[in-house]
């Protein structure tokens, strides 16, 4: 009886996976402001209101220079948005934040108002991983929010598996690592050994502010301030934690699965 009910239920519910990326992305919740946009031209001459309110010192302004907002260190608390009198920093509501290079996350210079989104992998790697990317998740001492939001990608609504992306148990079976957490000293050796255990060619994805730059723990003696200190990172997904959509967008961008060379939307 139980099996019968389950099958019927399953048939009634049909396919519950979202259409994205074939269809529209789901809307971000109200509290989520999306990415940030920095127009340093609007800043007052010696205003550093945003610098002092940032909890992770992600915003710097050298005297006479333009303001620089490091999205990699940003916790997306939006205090700077509220503090800025000139509306130089604004929230875009855009979920797309993933970048290939660390410097692409530093906003504020001319032409760098927003994140330069991630380009796809080279042709060889796209050929290897494009339809089958196995990732080993390394949880390196964080609060587990990034892990939770990564984990939800495996559920039925998001269904990471339809892209051939899967989390595997052993790095020997993996094509790359997905690192979350600020890489505490206790996990440093584990991360290095895991990286060494992944066969070549491999990629590394850093998800969350902690993995990119240390997050709220930045500067602490017991953390390594992000995975970049230990292993070369191929994809940075900023956020604290990044929305699952952001992470998914980053992964698909990496594999050029969004459709079109620059992606949709």
């Amino acid at each position: 009886m139980f099996i019968h009910d389950t099958i019927l239920n399953r048939l009634k519910r049909g396919c519950e996976t979202m259409d994205y990326p074939a269809g529209d992305a789901p809307a971000l919740p109200d509290r989520h402001g999306g990415g940030l946009r920095v127009e340093s031209a609007r800043c007052a001459a010696d205003c550093s209101a945003c610098v002092s309110v940032c909890p992770t010192e992600a915003i710097t302004r050298a005297s006479g220079q333009a303001v620089a907002l490091d999205l990699g260190r940003c916790l997306f608390c939006a205090e700077c948005v509220r503090a800025c009198p000139d509306r130089a920093i604004t929230q875009t509501g855009d979920h797309r934040l993933a970048a290939r290079l660390r410097e692409d996350l530093v906003l504020g210079g001319t032409g760098k108002e927003q994140v330069r989104l991630a380009a796809a992998l080279n042709e060889r790697l796209r050929g290897l991983f494009g339809r089958s990317l196995k990732l080993r998740q390394v949880s390196a001492g964080g609060c587990n929010a990034c892990e939770a939001d990564t984990n939800v990608l495996g559920t039925i609504g998001w269904d990471l598996g339809r892209f051939g992306i899967q989390f595997v148990a052993s790095p020997r079976h993996a094509d790359g690592l997905l690192i979350t957490g600020p890489v505490s000293k206790n996990m440093a050796l584990a991360l290095q050994k895991t990286y060494a255990a992944v066969p070549d060619p491999k990629i590394v994805i850093a998800v969350g502010a902690c993995a990119i730059a240390g997050g709220p723990f930045v500067g602490h003696s017991q953390v390594s301030d992000g995975a970049g200190a230990l292993v070369p990172v191929d994809l940075f997904v900023p956020g604290c934690p990044p929305h699952p959509l952001t992470i998914l967008d980053g992964l698909l961008r990496l594999l050029d699965r969004l459709g079109g060379p620059s992606g949709k939307g």
Partner: peptide, 12 residues
């Protein structure tokens, strides 16, 4: 061919 130690779950 790459030789490496047996995967030990990243322990010491």
């Amino acid at each position: 061919t790459v030789r490496g130690p047996t995967w030990d779950c990243g322990l010491q």
